[in-house]
Nucleic acid binder design. Structure first.
Length: 482
RNA sequence: GGCGAGUUGGCGGAGUGGUGACGCAGCGGAUUGCAAAUCCGUGAACAGGGGUUCGAUUCCCCUACUCGCCUCCA
């Protein structure tokens, strides 16, 4: 199965040809670790998680290397630590920075795990690669691609003639736009910082240019080289990183003599109810906020995958509901046909665990996840256990089911409820059954309306009735009926 | 100001140079005491204007509109 990917460098969809099929290598720009990941941070993680899974499926799980970094040296982190210090937290600023980054990384792992994202093979922290960055900067200076001035080291953008190729910009146009920082230590306003001085209280490392810290872009160039080698297959991130971050990475790496990435992938941004998610608009929320509101990680993931990665994705309450319902329907179909963790294990052992070719083709076509989900609706129409294998396979491939015990949950177990709740509902169902038997329709309907008003889904099959919490389940409405 | 993406039925959202996915909602039917849930069936779209073509929603150009990035937030 040939995978095609849209390469930002060429602005075209191209067949993906790995440099070494025995070791397909990809790099994703990870988070700056100063706070909880917001929903927008989750999009590239999930897009690249699907790519990672697809590559593993295509080339073998042991033949893909995925690197995603943690930016743990950054002025935002310093500012956050400083704010903590001023609020009375004990310790030096460096201690507080370390504390903060460790804490944030732990949060990040917990949140991304909850979304079903596989851990990358390597998660390097920038602070562990300072020596490599210094060496790289040193080489750039020696070759005339960078210069030192007032304790800063800057990249000489004019020296790299290809600058702007990735983002389709020209240096002169950008200067005309005048949105560049002019600083006395820059030869040219477009030059960007490779190294900058640190004051004594800020985190810093010794270097040929004095105690300081790296600029933002150099870390990715250094870590990608260190972990993936001179040339690797795929480099990705949000399209906000296309310029300047990725442009600068390319400039540094190419001028350092590295081959760098073949294919560049950029995901579009996330919006919330049609608007950009931003703190100023007040529609800003984190992954953790959603999880705590009771939105399962699988549902968040489903909503994300329902929009192609190169289109703006709009998070809406309506999509959340529809996604939740669809996922539930599929799990119920599987459960109805006997799916359990044991059965899945057995299917795999017997070699019955195979995917749907059409779905794999769709997914291989530039990660068409909405198309794959559409195909799953068709696969879900199968009415035998073995006919449903492709659906189950797809759910696992897309990371929508990490653990097949999920299918074993009955709907009522999905919702946390106090002990008295099922007892009351069972009693009302029983009373209604009696009323129905007596053909007392008024009373029977009154009881059903009461249950419905609390969001209880009452299902009549034959003469008996079962129930399950519906989407608007609110047991508080049944309180006082004990 | 610079750069880029998009505009498909009521809504969401794929795809294709010629028989117009898929889901939700709607409508019709089965079922039901009546409903719900479920099952079966079904109508409905390619921003506007030019061009290329035997033929364009699909390719090219223009216009309009929307959105994003370039600025602390991916």
């Amino acid at each position: 199965m040939t995978i095609t990917l849209h390469n930002t460098l060429t602005r075209k969809k191209e067949p993906f040809v790995p440099i070494d099929p025995a070791n397909v290598r990809m790099y994703l720009c990870g988070p700056t670790v100063y706070d909880r990941a917001h929903l927008g941070n989750a999009r590239p993680v999930l897009v690249f998680d699907v790519l990672y899974r697809l590559l593993r499926h295509t080339y073998g799980a042991d033949h893909v290397t995925y690197v995603r970094n943690f930016t743990d040296v950054d002025d935002k982190i310093n500012a956050t630590a400083l704010a903590h210090q001023q609020a009375g937290a004990p310790g030096t600023l460096e201690d507080l920075v370390a504390e903060r980054t460790d804490e944030t990384i732990a949060w990040y792992h917990a949140d991304m795990d909850a979304l079903g994202a596989l851990r990358p093979d390597h998660e390097p922290r920038a602070t562990e690669y300072i020596a490599q960055m210094v060496a790289m900067i040193d080489g750039l200076i020696k070759d005339g691609y960078a210069y030192e001035n007032e304790g800063h080291v800057l990249f000489r953008v004019r020296k790299y003639s290809e600058y702007g190729a990735l983002s389709g910009r020209s240096v002169d146009d950008m200067i005309a736009g005048a949105r560049v920082e002019v600083a006395p230590y820059k030869e040219d306003p477009m030059d960007f910082v490779l190294w900058k001085p640190s004051s004594d209280d800020l985190p810093g490392w010794d270097s040929p240019w004095g105690r300081g810290r790296p600029g933002w872009h150099i870390e990715c160039s250094a870590m990608a080289y260190e972990l993936l080698g001179d040339r690797f297959d795929i480099h990705g991130g949000g399209n906000d990183l296309q310029f300047p971050h990725h442009e600068n990475e390319i400039a540094q790496s190419k001028c350092a003599g590295h081959g760098f990435a073949n294919v560049w992938l950029h995901n579009e941004m996330l919006q919330v109810e049609g608007k950009k998610m931003s703190k100023s608009l007040g529609n800003f929320f984190t992954v953790r906020d959603l999880l705590e509101d009771g939105v399962p990680g699988e549902v968040i993931r489903f909503v994300m995958l329902a929009t192609h990665y190169r289109k703006p994705m709009d998070w809406t309450e309506k999509k959340r509901e529809e996604s939740s319902k669809t996922l539930m329907d599929w799990l119920h179909v599987l459960k109805k046909h006997g799916y359990t963790p044991k059965m899945v294990k057995q299917l795999k052992a017997e070699g019955q665990w195979s995917g749907d070719g059409e779905l794999l083709g769709t997914l291989s076509n530039d990660l068409n996840t909405p198309g794959a989900l559409a195909r799953m609706h068709v696969l879900a129409k199968a009415r035998t256990a073995e006919g449903l294998v492709p659906l189950a396979h797809a759910l696992e491939l897309l990371g929508l089911v990490a653990d097949w015990s999920l299918v074993d949950l009955t709907p009522s177990q999905d919702v946390k409820m106090a002990d008295w709740v099922p007892a009351v509902i069972d009693r009302l169902i029983e009373e209604r059954g009696a009323a129905r038997a007596a053909k007392n329709w008024g009373e029977a309907d009154r009881l059903r309306d009461l249950l419905n008003s609390a969001g209880v889904q009452v299902t009549d099959i034959g003469g008996s009735a079962t129930w399950a919490p519906g989407p608007d389940f609110d047991p508080a409405k049944l309180e006082g009926l004990t």
